[in-house]
Simulated scan of single mutants.
Amino acid sequence: MTGVALLGAGIFAKTQHLPAIEAASDLNLLAVYSRSQSSAAALVSLIKDSSKKPQEYYDSPAGSNSLDALLARSDISAVIVSLPILAQPAVIRKALAAGKHVLSEKPIAPDVKGAQELIAYYDSLPAATRPIWSVAENFRFLPVLHDAADKIKAIGGRLVAFHLIMNGFVKEEDEFYNTEWRKVPGYQGGFLLDGGVHFLAGLRFLLAAAGDEVERVACFSSLLEKRLPPVDSVHAVAATRGGVNGTVSISFGTEFKATLEVCVVTTEGRVTWDPSKVVSVRRGQADEETKKFEQDFGVVAEVAAFGKSVAAGKADPLQSPQEALKDLALLEALLQSGPSGSVKTAV
């Protein structure tokens, strides 16, 4: 069993990562790290079994229980990094330099340039001793999304149209909103970067099933809810490498409308995905087929996949930094196009 540390004590670490680590048969949680002792202690307090309490590490107050001390432990082989977006790259580098396998939360970095530099650093490490670096994108582990991709492949045909529509509203009382680094983002896109990469990962996954990918976008962006700067909505036309046009619409500032779906249309049929079901129809089929799914955030499966990767010594391709970079590149292209509507390359 692999000794693992959870770096970060935010709401996602509490509600998703901690239960996922506890459920993973290949991982043994030995330590947690947060910037403050109080937040590290609060995370540890959620573990009821006193025999399984991990050790706490923190920056404040300064002392012997630092991040460097955690990374020096020989019994910890892997870390899961769930820190604020701007803090993650430096910690990822430090963990990799210490020889630890890393599962880092999306987005891979605040921007494409930073992501490319991080990947270049990883590639520069000696191949013989290079640890595994995986990037967590839980949408790639959703059973409902995999079912939609399988149906697209089964239906076949040539891609002719697609769309991604996501409308949501970040409320003031939302736990994710009530973190200072999200209220005053020091990175591009605000919630569009923090959450939008999920939906773009889903779109890319389904377009790949149809044998294509988005190459260019022309977008308009806006700020509908003033407390969600710098922009909270993007509406775009997207063109694939194969010359097919579709639309991408993502908004975190649209109240009274909650929508999330990706639709892929080929010359042989159509598949529409949302988090609870897959609706499909193919040539010669009289009625639509609907398959429903129970709610699943995919985090338990993605953490388990990381544990299996470490045990096998081989990274899961669904968690590759290159895939995460492509998610980010598409999001950044939308944000860069947004002010003017100019065409931007997305890959």
Rank of each mutant, 00 (worst) to 15 (best):
A315G: 09
I92R: 03
S104Y: 05
R227P: 10
V144G: 02
D111L: 07
F252G: 08
A148Q: 00
V265W: 10
L331W: 06
R130G: 09
I155E: 04
Q285H: 09
S134D: 10
G253E: 07
K171N: 14
S342V: 11
L18W: 05
A258I: 14
K153M: 09
K100I: 02
G114F: 04
V244D: 09
T272N: 05
L30G: 08
V343H: 05
S233I: 11
V214T: 02
R35T: 01
A209I: 03
L30Y: 07
G63A: 06
P131W: 07
T345L: 15
V4N: 00
Q188P: 15
D150G: 03
L118C: 10
E255F: 15
V4K: 00
T129L: 11
A95Y: 05
T129A: 13
V4S: 01
D49I: 06
P61F: 04
Y58G: 08
L83A: 01
G157T: 06
L86P: 09
I76T: 04
P275F: 02
A238Q: 01
G196R: 02
D150W: 06
A136F: 13
L125W: 08
E261A: 15
I21G: 05
E175K: 15
I47V: 11
G195P: 12
V310T: 01
A5Y: 00
G284E: 07
D232K: 07
F176C: 10
F141T: 00
L331Y: 06
A333I: 00
D59H: 12
S39H: 04
S34D: 04
G242N: 09
A333D: 02
K52H: 12
E288F: 10
A346R: 01
A236G: 04
Q188S: 13
K171A: 14
R182H: 15
D147G: 09
A90M: 09
